[in-house]
Design a protein around this nucleic acid. Structure first.
Lengths: 298, 298
DNA sequence: CACCGTCATCAGACAATCTTATGGACTCTC
DNA sequence: GAGAGTCCATAAGATTGTCTGATGACGGTG
């Protein structure tokens, strides 16, 4: 009958994620729904919009799809602008806020956070910054980010009204065929017998600490920078590793996540920049920080 | 849940037409549908968008509504752009074509024409020009319009592939309380006994001709320029008149349309500019004219 | 004072869409 | 080269949402 918003969103999502399944996941609907919606759009415009015969994974848009995409995005942007204008008009918080997180939080927690923000603060746009844990407080201090999710933070790094988020635990990650893959839990001791790959990120210090308390030597065969690379190596059978529970969405098929004992939990705290004098200047807190924190306050 | 295209269209239509009923009519849905849709939008944005307590007829947008309207229009325009791009991509006709018509045709015929064009040629935008019948051929010749609906046209004014549209008949129009108002038909003879107001437009010549063939004197008490003014005068009780059947949508409450005998039909012909040398230059026919004519060819 | 036009509300019916479950096609791995 | 896994398409069922038609309340008008 006519082009619908759902069709526009589907087109955008498929173009953005390169697959129907991923698009469905992003849109929080089932894959057949995306299939049907895209098909409806193609009937509507009288031609194929995505090329399914791409062989390789990333589905690619047809020339027609590429011609249509900018229009679709314009419409969707206008819609977002409308809701933002509405929120602004009724005095609701609005604007852009920069959120700094580490990779694992980005993968396992941020999607839920963003969904919540989109629902409750529709006029707020969150800009994501991904970095390493140690530099988060510096980003806040320097004003490079407005809020951050800190891991096991020092009290002096917390801003006013900081919110404790549900913490996560460290997990073992082993190749799919590994003897430990089917286990419901793995003791650290069983892990050190294998080729242990150490992450270069923030959880290495915790892992080292865990070894010490267990009286085990911390002897990784390699140190890998980047959670994704680490997981890829495990999936390839290069060894085993310990990663945060939140990294679950990043684990490729070929690797399995197994709870680790003794359990070591990480505290996750959502906070703005610490108040007070910073570098000689007393900055104002970003106006969106408090509404954002309030959203996740228990 | 989220803002809908229907809501955007409703907002635009209400803003454009100044009433829920008119908007419903323009959108081809029932009035309660518009009511509900606008209400849904107001729930969505968290505030009223139209001011119902305006007392006077034209419903007015609230400040919130005015803030939202441009976004809504942007989204709708983008959508139109998308369908146009799609049509263009598959080689369908697209672009802008200027259509010249007289007031009555504009009111009684053009809406259907536009609806048909929007359905069949979604990438074609029709620009409307309203004028008097005698000047139509000149507009075509001068290139001020690309197509026109001519009334009882001379053969030399017709372009290639001109299409005969269903003609319309002249009708009497009388005040609501008039003795003839309830009649199923009125003879011209009964009309001349009353205060006859003559339109200044194209149908005056036909009316004069009709009088001659009936052997009746043509003695209007006034000559009114503009179909709308003429109808308003009749509604006010200033007299009776003869207008084309197509003017029906323009008849205000307070006046009634009654078929006239003897019936005098007008031929309506949709045509582009006559081909051949015009003013020394041999113009190309506008590329959209033929697709447009083809749409209405029997 | 009565009438007309406008918008809101209501109950019922229809239509559209989503979800779960399943099949076919392809690629990557062993 | 065979198997496994992934991806997209299809089918049937259920749910949700929206539209229509009728009716009521309000204000303006002759």
């Amino acid at each position: 009958m006519t082009v619908t918003l759902a069709q526009l969103r589907a087109l955008d999502a498929v173009a953005r994620h390169g697959s129907f399944s991923a698009a469905a996941d992003a849109l929080r609907v089932s894959q057949p729904a995306v299939s049907g919606t895209v098909k409806a759009l193609e009937v509507e415009v009288g031609g194929a919009v995505v090329d399914r015969s791409s062989g390789g994974r990333p589905v690619v848009l047809t020339p027609l799809g590429h011609a249509l995409l900018p229009h679709a995005r314009t419409a969707l942007d206008a819609l977002a602008g409308l809701t933002a204008a509405a929120a602004e008009h009724r005095g609701a918080p609005h604007g852009v806020v920069r959120l700094a997180v580490v990779t694992s939080v980005r993968a396992g927690l941020v999607p839920q956070l963003l969904r919540r923000v989109a629902e409750e603060l529709p006029a707020v746009t969150v800009e994501l910054l991904e970095g390493d844990d140690p530099e988060m407080p510096d980003w806040l201090d320097a004003g490079l980010a407005d809020v951050a999710v800190l891991i096991n933070p020092e009290p002096r790094d917390l801003g006013p009204g900081a919110v404790e988020l549900p913490g996560d635990a460290l997990c073992a990650v082993v190749p799919a065929g590994h003897a430990l893959a089917a286990r419901s839990s793995v003791h650290l001791e069983e892990l050190v017998a294998d080729r242990l790959l150490a992450s270069g990120g923030g959880c290495q210090v915790q892992l080292r600490e865990l070894h010490r308390t267990c009286g085990l030597p911390f002897r990784p065969v390699a140190e890998v920078a980047g959670l994704r690379s680490l997981l890829a190596m495990v999936a390839r059978g290069d060894g085993v590793a310990v990663v945060p529970e939140l990294a679950a969405p990043l684990v490729p098929s070929g690797a399995h996540l197994v709870p680790l004992v003794p359990e070591l939990r990480r505290r996750l705290v959502l906070t703005g920049a610490p108040s007070g004098v910073a570098g000689g200047s007393c900055r104002e807190q970003h106006p969106l920080v408090e509404p954002l924190l309030a959203l996740f306050r228990p």
